[in-house]
Structures are given as C-alpha cells and as structure tokens.
Amino acid sequence: MTRAGLLFDQPELEDAIETDELVAWKKQRYLEFRETMRETRYPCHFAVQAERADTARYLFAGNARDRDALLKVREGLRQYLERYQSIADRTTLVLFFEPPPEGQSEQEYRDQFWRVLEFLNERDPEPWPRDVPEDPNDPEWEFCFSGEPMFIVGRAPFYTDRKSRYTPYGLEMTIQPRRALDDISGDTVEGQQARSVIRDRLEDYDDVAPHPDIGDYGDPTAWEWQQYLLPTSNEESLDEFPFEIDTE
C-alpha cells in the first residue's frame, strides 16, 4: 500500500518493479502503458504529459467481473477525487484491470466497461451534482461520481485499427476530472489548438479515420458518453445510454 492508499504514483511503481514487489500482470500492464505514452507519435499530448510529469495516478483493480475488484475501483476513485487537486492542474487516473484468463469478445469487454460505471453510479457516496444535467442526452451531461463530473476513455484489445484506444492485455480506463480540463475546453483558444493537434495526430496514428462521434463537451451535436468506448467502425454509433442513471 502506498502513501495514497490504493493509488500508485510513478516513482512508487518503478520502485515496486525494481524490487520485484509488483505481481507479473501489474508490471506488464504498467510497462505497456508507459511505453505507449512515451511514444512520440501518441496523439494525446495531455496523456503523454501526465505520464512524463508524474501527474497520473494508477490503480490495479483485478478482474473486472469480480465484485471485489469493482469495490476497489470505487474506493480508489473516491481517494483520487478527494486529493486530485493537490496533485497538479492537469492529472488523470489510470485503471488497469487484470487480463482475462482466456480471450474475450468485444461485447464482453463492452459489457464490463459499462458495468464498472453502473456499479459506481449505484454506489455513489454523494448525490448527483446540481449543476450537471441528469439526462445523458443533454449535451452538458457527463458521468459523475463523488460529486465530480469526469471524462472517461476506455482502451481494450479489440481496437486493432483504432490504435489510440488499443491495449493488448485487457480493459483499461482513464479518468480525468472536468475541473482539470476547464481551462482547455472547446471554447478556449488553447483548447481549440489542442484538439486540432490531437485530431491531426489521430489521423496519422490510427489505421482508421477519427470517429465522427468525437466532439467537444457541450457541443449540442455530441454526447460525451458516446466517446467513452468508441465503436471499432466509423459507421457505428452508440445511440442509447447503456443503463439508467441513479441521481439520488
């Protein structure tokens, strides 16, 4: 256990690897993530910077099918949201799930991803924030937990062409609190520049064009939750939010 409870920072992870204190699957997951983030071609500048500047925090959750793993995610996310503002202006939480013992289908990964969010929503320690719409079909809606709205990205082995969302070993989720992104929103000059650079890099990095559902928070033509776990094909889109949000 680290000074941040369930969460690791980068020096703690590297020390655990050097001293052989990290079990094989955890070491494998982090080293693959680190190598990806440190590639100069990786499209998301903010993700790369969080890894290089040690402003990311990491949680190893276990098997996504297990209730104990989901409870660990709940507690780890709560710990992170409690202290993220003291880490840096720009920070992210990376959730690694243990690789499944055998291959999984794309649908199984999708079911697990949304089950994680449903589990968190069902066991949210705080009521839904008053300033965030309760309807997922409102363009200003986004997932909330412990009173904090956040942007979520899922990576998984089935993204063989959409390489920016690909990881070979199992489900992975990155979470960024909305407050850490407010100064680079789509209506700011810095935010528009950053999105332009990321979109250009996506076209070079991925073997498929950027998905048409990728858009800016608050854009009336885009819903953030459609971007959480993108379809593999640009002809597909998630038309209905996968579960009923509890806002009590």
Rank of each mutant, 00 (worst) to 15 (best):
T160Y: 15
E190L: 08
V197L: 12
W141S: 07
Q192K: 05
E190T: 02
M173V: 12
E140G: 09
D183V: 08
I184W: 11
T174S: 10
I184C: 13
S146Y: 06
D182W: 00
V197R: 12
F143V: 01
E203P: 03
P139Q: 14
P136H: 10
D182Y: 09
T188W: 12
T167M: 15
V197S: 14
I198G: 01
Y166S: 14
P139D: 12
R162I: 01
I198E: 13
D183S: 12
P177M: 13
P139F: 08
D138H: 09
I152N: 09
S164C: 05
R178I: 00
G154N: 14
R162E: 04
Y159A: 04
D206I: 00
C144F: 01
D204W: 09
F145E: 01
R199Q: 15
E203M: 08
D183N: 14
E140T: 00
D138R: 10
N137D: 15
A156P: 10
E172C: 10
G170F: 07
L171V: 01
P149W: 02
S146R: 07
G170A: 10
F158N: 14
S146G: 12
D207I: 05
L171R: 12
R162P: 00
G170V: 06
G170S: 08
S164E: 01
A194N: 07
S185T: 05
A180T: 05
S196E: 13
F151G: 01
P157D: 01
M173F: 11
M150Y: 00
R201E: 04
P139S: 14
S164M: 07
P177S: 05
Q176E: 10
A156D: 14
F151Q: 08
R165C: 02
G191W: 12
R179I: 01
Y169N: 06
R199Y: 02
E148G: 00
Q192N: 06
T188M: 14
E134F: 02
K163A: 11
D135G: 03
R199D: 13
Q193C: 11
D138I: 03
E134M: 07
R199K: 08
C144E: 04
V153A: 14
A156H: 15
A156G: 13
K163H: 07
N137A: 02
R199L: 02
D200K: 08
S146Q: 06
D200C: 07
R201N: 13
F145A: 00
Y159K: 09
E140R: 04
V153Q: 15
G186M: 13
D183R: 13
D206S: 06
V189W: 15
G154P: 07
I184T: 10
L171D: 09
